[in-house]
Amino acid sequence: MKLKALLTSAAVTAALAVPAFAETTLRIQTHYGPETISGKNAAQFVDDVQVMSNGEIKIEMFYSSSVVASVETFDAAVNGILDCDMTGGAYQTGKNPAFQFVGDIMGGYDTPYQQLGWLYKGGGMEAAQKLYNQYGMELIGWWVVGQEALSSSKPLDSLEAFKGWKFRSPPGLETKIFEKLGASPIVMDFTEVFTSLESGIIEGADASILANNKGMGLYDIVKHATYPGFHSMPSDHLACNKTVWDAMPENQKRIMTTAMQKLALQQALTAEYENNKAAAELKAAGVTLWNLSTEDRAAFRAAAVSTWPEFATTDEAKALVAAHTEYLKSQGMAN
């Protein structure tokens, strides 16, 4: 009986020593629809976090910017309407141009792995974190889909072909870079692209990766594309309200950051798979894919890097440009 009592007492003591179950519920918004490549990968991220945390972390994911507009997601997380923002830093360039250099580092990198290398190995996380913390947010990680493809009604076989080329461009840094190359970027809403291509107002468009462009039907209208891409590789982020993040136990933080790194790998692998599949189908359908030479790619990067300082008008932006430039030099990718 004494032994039984001792064992019972030890079991009670051990049970009391176990920390209380800490449950965290996160409301996260993404601009992607659940049926897209990115939306499906985001759903897998949610499942990974909930399973690895054994239910300690519960995530309520809002797809297709269903709570607030995409550009308002960051502020909604800051103000407590949401807990985390799973869109991208490029939406916040109006706050600070520094967000350009964590949102879309135009011309900087050829592959998602290089860009993730800057974040995780080149001091990028530390440099970016200062920017996010300044606005009451914590950067948890990136997921990079890969280089976007330009669609065109004429061949894009070299940088020379871009002279006079009229195409739909997003506002900001991209217009500056392509203007230096002699192109004629026209800023317009994406909803106007199809009619503008059909009527000849523009000759091409910067929209998305090759697989997405194909899915949207762009190559039913124009028959040329750049692939692999070279000009734009947006980084989507997961950024959370810093107060919410700081209150989470360390084990939950580790689960979130680890799951983000898995998401980054899956996003890059999935996009590469889908892009190569789309490339084969487009070639068979008579669409010509243009792969710029190594020399032309280097020339575009040089034009982009030389334009970065023109857009980096704040101390935070200058710091990020310096971090990217030093990393590119360390990798032999820039002079």
Rank of each mutant, 00 (worst) to 15 (best):
G88M: 04
A259V: 04
K154I: 12
A284H: 07
S235K: 05
T87P: 02
A127E: 08
D47K: 15
E148L: 15
E316S: 11
T36K: 11
G286L: 12
L282A: 09
Q261W: 06
L131P: 03
D315P: 02
A319E: 06
F190N: 14
F167L: 05
G122K: 03
S208V: 03
F21G: 00
W165L: 11
F311I: 15
E192T: 10
Y219N: 06
S64L: 01
N96E: 10
L3I: 14
K329Y: 11
Y132N: 07
G55T: 10
A239L: 00
G172C: 14
A77Y: 08
F62H: 01
L6K: 12
Y135N: 01
G146E: 06
A42S: 11
Q147L: 09
S235D: 05
A299N: 10
F74V: 04
A322M: 02
E23Q: 14
K163Y: 05
F45Y: 13
R168K: 12
A14E: 10
V102G: 12
I37D: 12
S330C: 08
M333E: 04
G200I: 12
G39Y: 00
G215N: 10
V67N: 07
F45H: 08
T226P: 01
S53D: 08
A304K: 01
G123M: 06
Q147N: 15
G164V: 04
S53L: 10
I201M: 11
M1P: 08
P309H: 07
V102R: 01
S184Y: 01
P170F: 13
M52R: 15
I255Q: 03
L197F: 06
Y327L: 10
D104P: 00
A183I: 07
H324A: 05
A15V: 12
T30L: 11
A183V: 04
K180A: 08
D246P: 00
F194A: 09
F194W: 02
Y120L: 09
A268N: 05
T313A: 02
A317E: 03
S153V: 12
A280D: 14
E138Q: 13
E295N: 11
A42N: 13
G332A: 09
P34Y: 10
G141V: 00
A280F: 00
A128K: 05
E192D: 15
F167N: 04
L289T: 13
L265A: 13
F162T: 06
I209D: 07
E72Q: 15
G200R: 14
A205W: 02
N213L: 04
